[in-house]
Amino acid sequence: MKGKALSLLSDYGLFVILVILVAISALLSPLFFTAANLKNFISQASYNGILSVGMTFVILIGGIDLSVGSIVGFASILYGTLMHGNFFTFMPNEIFIYKGATVLTPILPLPFDIIFVLLIGGLLGFLNGVISSRFHIHSFIVSLCMMIFVRGLAVSYTNGQPLFGVPDSISYLAYGEPLGIPMPAIVWLIICIIAVWILKYTRFGRRIYAVGGDEEAARLSGIQPSLYQIFPLIVSGLLAAAVGIIMSGRMGCGDPKIGEGWQTDAIAAVVIGGASLSGGKGGIGGTIIGVLIMGLINNVMNLLEIDAYPQQMAKGIIIIAALAIQGVFSARNSND
């Protein structure tokens, strides 16, 4: 009976925690349940939400992608460069004098610039995946190197300067509110739907679970693992690039420094959502709740005007606590 109660708790516990957190937030700050704050909360959460979808894919195969924060920054500056017609003149720093350059001279017409940036993001993810799969190096270490490389690339590209000016269509992605719903949230929702479709309703997605759960069992069932190990990292890189584009819209500039440390929020959200770091367990539903929980904690800490630094400490503790709870649970299950 106790086991049943526990499994119920692990099935629905997350949702209960979310509800409790909402209640606490409302009690702590009267500002919480205002339309402005809720809109702000949901659009803030959306950025992490989109990254977390990619991270869910990666964690499902037992990997981790630390490079997403850097890819956000790289995509942002890459997009900015595309807007200023200088993409092919990658030159030493002095030549780049972008300050005040708000006249847009896009190299590619509208949908293609976005597609191009997304493809580059996907390519970076692909590199993560291939190196980690081919050389059997855990993706956390490959993506750690990638994180440093991509950030260095992004920052040195414009000597750390932001590139101002983005087209209205991109600003709309960040600030638009069709039907009163913030655009980032809509993008997040669409991505979630696609992700659920892939993970839950295609054989491809189910095979990702199989490979993450037990590579050998998957192989015996006639699945070739390497494709399913590389694909999630591509998704993660691609979605990070998407976040980078929307962030450019939000800030009105391409900023190479944006996204620093965001990978940890994404990891935290996925882990809180119940995914196992050893792979094979987790899903978009859990991740959405994880993102909302992380977002709520951020939002409330901001409303209570807690400094950024204790906030960071809290995140470290939340990650460890979520993992510790998982560890204790799985230890108990395996003892049965």
Binding site: W197, T202, R206, R207, A210, E216, A217, S276, G280, K281
Partner: peptide, 30 residues
């Protein structure tokens, strides 16, 4: 049927039965 069961503990019974060959509807969805 292997002696060492190749099973995925975190998936449902049905998933394990149809691992890699889940039935699909008209639209190619599981």
């Amino acid at each position: 049927l292997h002696q060492e069961l190749p099973i995925l503990r975190d998936l449902t019974v049905a998933e394990n039965l149809f691992l890699g060959r889940q039935p699909r509807s008209r639209f190619g969805l599981v």
